[in-house]
Design a protein around this nucleic acid. Structure first.
Length: 490
RNA sequence: GCCCCCAUCGUCUAGGGGACCAGGACGCAGCCCUUUCAAGGCUAAAACCAGGGUUCGAAUCCCUGUGGGGGCACCA
């Protein structure tokens, strides 16, 4: 198995899914998962993209067995370092009569294309250099005349290729072009390079996006002309934008960020998504296990994934489903894991935290988080020196400021006199106090919640107070009482 | 324009001639639980793109149309 991305931008969901399926297949068959960088076009190379790719893959937990950074028996693993290999195969193709050097300039080609377009024809090479006798062509090449190498596509007949998810696809050769295989700078294009590499690296399954379907017949032509064995080709459906109308554009990608979503793996990490959630989500875009199972860990997927259940239809990206899966996986994490994963987000927000305290907070926030960064607004009050409640929010529902003040004062004395400051020992007395004050427990808790956490919504109040400790709670109640007093006077 | 692919609730999907007045999930609505918010439980609304065939019988097979997507580079 191999995952062969090109380092031309941010690593996105589609790459993640392809890599995932590659990884799964490799793991379940005991094969190797190879990372090969398709950087044969230096013009499109983006600095840092390769590093981001590897970071993203590792974050997802998809560690490769062979790759540019760790070597392996079939290296090098960057196409830019394999130029001579492709040259050799390209000329073998020429010798076999399946390819030929072409001396047409890029200018002439552009002109030709324009002409064809004006006549509303499909852009295709007119075959001028195809007619040059091989001996003459070889001589011109030996003379150093600039040239590319083209595939000599048969004019007659058709070719039938087999895609694992779609079955047989038959195309008339007349609809295919004399594609360029090697550039004038001597570097091979994807069409040749990928086929040669996959053969040399003993790749059994080629999993790639369906954007390769149109050139799929060319690839099989090359393979057959070279006499190479054909791997199993699996073309995955594309991802559509959430509306289902068309694929993601640059603008929409930027707009998505406003809503806290992204199609880039590295963003997802920063937004507080877990690798488990992302993996589960993308695994099910175009694949299913049965009619009801949806929760999968990576290990589950290794166990249960199969190419048979791939779906050829394009799939719209559904981010609310990502939220759902992320929440599901956060809830299945241990306290230790939650504490560990949530800490970086507190750090970014400027809070000094301790694992010890986070460990005690974890059970209180586990069921309330959709993304890991939700922990910060939810539990930030644990790490603040003081909270700043809004004066009006300290007034209980359907209560006057004076009544609220009294409730805070009574609570202060009750808690100050409590033998031990635990959730269990505080609850009974506080409910009795509410009764005594003639208010509902909910009203009392509401006032206290704002006083102690500074928030209208918070994790369970009494558990939170126990973690904060008696001193902090009493202190915050005192502050709240003062604010209420000021409120009453003014 | 030409070539290729695809088509079940809003979305992801199950289904592959009778087991389907079409199942699950997300989201949405309601109810229950509840100290807030969640989580959890229950209930509801919601789909076989259209038209022709084949067949005793079609969501399922075939054709046409329509819609959507992809491609038509010395990009991948």
């Amino acid at each position: 198995m191999r995952f062969a991305p090109s380092p031309t931008g941010h690593t996105h969901l589609g790459s993640g899914r392809t890599a995932l399926y590659d990884y799964l297949l490799a793991r379940q068959t005991g094969g190797q998962f190879i990372l090969r960088i398709e950087d044969s076009d230096q013009k499109r190379y983006v600095e840092g993209a390769e590093q981001e790719l590897m970071d993203s893959l590792r974050w997802l937990g998809l560690e490769w067995d062979e790759g540019p950074d760790k070597g392996g028996p079939y290296g090098p693993y960057r196409q830019s370092e394999r130029k001579e290999i492709y040259q050799q195969y390209a000329w073998e193709l020429v010798e076999r009569g399946s390819a030929y050097p072409c001396f047409c300039s890029a200018d002439r080609l552009a002109e030709l294309r324009q002409e064809q377009q004006s006549r509303r024809e499909t852009g295709r090479y007119d075959g001028r250099c195809r007619r040059i006798p091989p001996a003459e062509a070889a001589a011109r090449v030996a003379d150093g005349e600039p040239h590319v190498i083209r595939f000599k596509m048969p004019h007659e007949g058709s070719i039938t290729v087999n895609d694992y998810v779609r079955g047989e696809i038959t195309v008339e050769n007349a609809n295919l072009d004399d594609y360029i295989l090697v550039r004038s700078d001597g570097l091979a294009l994807y069409h040749l390079a990928a086929m040669v590499d996959d053969h040399l690296m003993k790749i059994s399954h080629v999993i790639r996006g369906s954007e390769w379907l149109p050139t799929f017949p060319l690839h099989v032509h090359i393979l057959r002309a070279l006499g190479l064995q054909e791997p199993v080709f699996v073309h995955l459906s594309v991802f559509l934008k959430p509306s289902g109308k068309g694929k993601m554009s640059k603008r929409e990608t930027a707009a998505l960020m406003q809503d806290g979503y992204s199609i880039f793996i590295k963003d997802l990490k920063e937004l507080g998504y877990t690798p488990e959630g992302v993996l589960n989500w993308i695994a099910l875009m175009g694949w299913s296990y049965d009619d009801h199972t949806e929760f999968f860990t990576l290990a589950d997927l290794v166990d249960k994934f199969s190419l048979e259940r791939l779906n050829p239809a394009p799939a719209a990206i559904n981010f609310t489903k990502l939220d759902h899966f992320n929440g599901l996986h956060i809830r299945s994490l241990s306290d230790e894991e939650i504490a560990r994963r949530v800490q970086p987000f507190f750090e970014i927000a400027g809070y000094a935290t301790s694992q010890d305290k986070l460990l005690r907070i974890a059970p209180l926030i586990r069921e309330r988080m959709v993304t890991l960064d939700d922990a910060v607004p939810m539990a930030g009050f644990f790490f603040k020196d003081q909270v700043m409640p809004a004066a009006q929010e300290l007034v209980g529902k359907n209560m006057t400021p004076a009544e609220s003040l009294r409730a805070v004062q009574r609570t202060y004395h009750l808690l100050a006199g409590l033998r031990d400051f635990s959730h269990e020992s505080a609850e009974g007395p506080l409910r009795e106090l509410a009764d005594e004050l003639g208010i509902k427990a909910g009203q009392l808790f509401g006032i206290l919640r704002v006083a102690v956490t500074g928030q209208i919504v918070s994790p369970p109040l009494l558990e939170s107070m126990a973690i904060l400790g008696r001193d902090v709670v009493l202190d915050r109640l005192q502050v709240a009482a003062r604010m209420l007093e000021d409120n009453i006077e003014s």
